[in-house]
Amino acid sequence: MELSGIQKIIEKNGTHRSALIPILLDIQDEYHFLSRDALACVAQTMDIALVDVYRAATFYKYFSLVPKGEHLIQVCLGTACHVRGAPGVLNEIQRKLHIKPRETTEDKLFTLETVNCLGACAMGPIIVMDEEYHGQMTVSKVDKLIESFKKHEGITKDEQDKKH
């Protein structure tokens, strides 16, 4: 991660204390995680104690301190999805990928997250794969969906190999 990029983000938002969360959001958006160096750089430039930056970075759910996998799976656990069977869907994904929510598979292919409500309750249970919604999910559909991503990934990997 280039610190000059971080500096630019800080410059854009300013160094007033109230700019801290907007800055962290921008860094998260840009680099998909908050690295140790980035947080140290923010603390130093903004003249805030590192613990304060770290505390904010760990308090809010949007921030991640580790890089995420290539594909983001978000399982909606909103109440509407819950009563329609979302926990079963989540269980199946966990069983299939051997990861818990907020974790990434060893091959860095998938990151699993849970979200509270996506406002698309009519379609519940919902999972979002890389921003694409999949409604009316069932345990039996999970398998196919994940397989389709793995397959897709397999193809692109082959292609990458050919290029090299």
Binding site: R36, L39, A49, L50, V51, D52, V53, Y54, R55, T58, F59, L65
Partner: peptide, 18 residues
């Protein structure tokens, strides 16, 4: 200011950065 709270809810703890 070496230590502070981190995380929230059931994960909340007191620690140094990282």
């Amino acid at each position: 200011k070496a230590i502070d709270f981190a995380f929230r809810g059931g994960d909340r703890k007191i620690t140094t950065p990282f």
